[in-house]
Design a protein around this nucleic acid. Structure first.
Lengths: 223, 223
DNA sequence: CGCCAAGTTGACAAGTCTCAATGTAAGTGG
DNA sequence: CCACTTACATTGAGACTTGTCAACTTGGCG
């Protein structure tokens, strides 16, 4: 989090506890009370919500720097689990509340984080509401790529997709076979190259963006 | 907004300016700087985002009590316009910032409002990501109905749908003819009665909820 | 090396979209 | 106040994307 003054930052850092999470380890459970707020430090996580029956809908992926449960209210809005081995920094929810009331700068930093997350959710509403399979995949690959670069990776580095295809499919509102075929089509069109199922090279961002309908052309946002 | 102490409330009320909006009047324009935060007092509004071309995706409907642009960041995330004649209460964004820094109770009230809005967006992600046309309509009618009752209307009062069918279709990620047919099916199944295109009576909420997959039954769930 | 989970590919059915015509309510001017 | 005009909603027929079910292939991990 940028923009914190020295005092707020040190107070927050001293309140954080770090711990490792294993690849499929559960972090949050939907409906349970929010005891801690987590920040992904290393690795990656996914958030999902359950529907009656055994249906689940993936609502987001989290990478280093992303905050989990910052504005869930009293109970968890979604379940979450690690999709790669990693590290979390955790903060008791009530402790965060105190710090927020105390430090304006922390409040503003958190506000920016919330705004960004909300913008992501709205972007995703557009993906799910008005796009074909190929458009959804292209738009989402670009979105994840942009976030990866925002974390300091160079454009040449292949995009890291730690989630299973099933989960990516759910996130895109598609069935697994459809997603698989769509990957195949993008590969055939030479827009991407799959080094492995979790590493994809974006060969032509321009054309991907065009395919995605330029929906997020410069959603890169100042935050 | 509930939970405000007397002082914060009076300070906020004195900073509000009220003004009327006509039926299709534009309130916000996507990408423009956020100068004011608006609260719907009377009437209704919708929020949408543009994609390249002339495609637009409706991302939400707002009714009395709902807040517009409270956490948009520096620029508007979405455009908004009135879908019924009404009244807005407006507050300069920087003035809101001052009040927030000053009053803990206002901060908490706004935090609740943001949490609620985010929960709505995530509910809608489930609608768009994993539901058939009938499920989408049933779930959304129930959602709007619940919000209407939360505004103090009795269950016998027909559900008010001030938006055009086109906009509701966009919100549901469907095309207009599909939505129309789906309305027809729910009508044929005696789940709803359309008094007019903007007034719908929910005849069997139980069965509608079942059709919707109980997605939002009580938001409280057992593990 | 072999097993099991994960991903790919194929054939077919189903739901939704598209295009187009018809019907209906709302707004406007004579 | 009525006829006209426009905007909005419903309905119909056919094409196409996606979902479904199933077989098959790949790859990670013991």
């Amino acid at each position: 989090m940028q923009g914190l003054d020295r005092d707020a930052q040190s107070r927050m850092l001293s309140a954080l506890t770090y711990h490792a999470v294993a690849k499929h380890e559960l972090i949050n459970l939907e409906g349970h009370p929010v005891t801690h707020v987590h920040i992904v430090v290393r690795g990656a996580a996914m958030a999902w919500r359950n529907r009656s029956g055994n249906h689940a809908q993936v609502v987001g992926f989290l990478f280093p720097g992303d905050v989990l449960g910052a504005f869930a209210g009293a109970t968890q809005q979604a379940s979450a689990r690690a999709i790669a081995p990693g590290t979390l920094a955790s903060l008791p929810a009530d402790r965060l509340g105190e710090l927020i009331d105390q430090y304006t700068s922390l409040r503003h930093a958190l506000y920016r984080s919330v705004s960004t997350e909300f913008a992501l959710a709205q972007d995703h509403l557009m993906v799910l509401g008005a796009m074909s399979a190929a458009e959804r995949l292209a738009a989402t690959l670009l979105q994840l790529d942009r976030r990866q670069q925002a974390r300091g990776y160079r454009p040449e580095v292949p995009l890291w997709l730690p989630m299973r295809r099933t989960d990516l499919a759910s996130y895109l509102g598609l069935e697994l076979p459809t997603l698989s075929r769509t990957f195949g089509r993008l590969r055939a069109a030479n827009l991407i190259t799959c080094k492995s199922s979790s590493e994809v090279l974006l060969r032509d961002r321009r054309e991907l963006a065009e395919l995605a309908g330029d929906a997020f052309e410069e959603t890169a946002r100042s935050a």
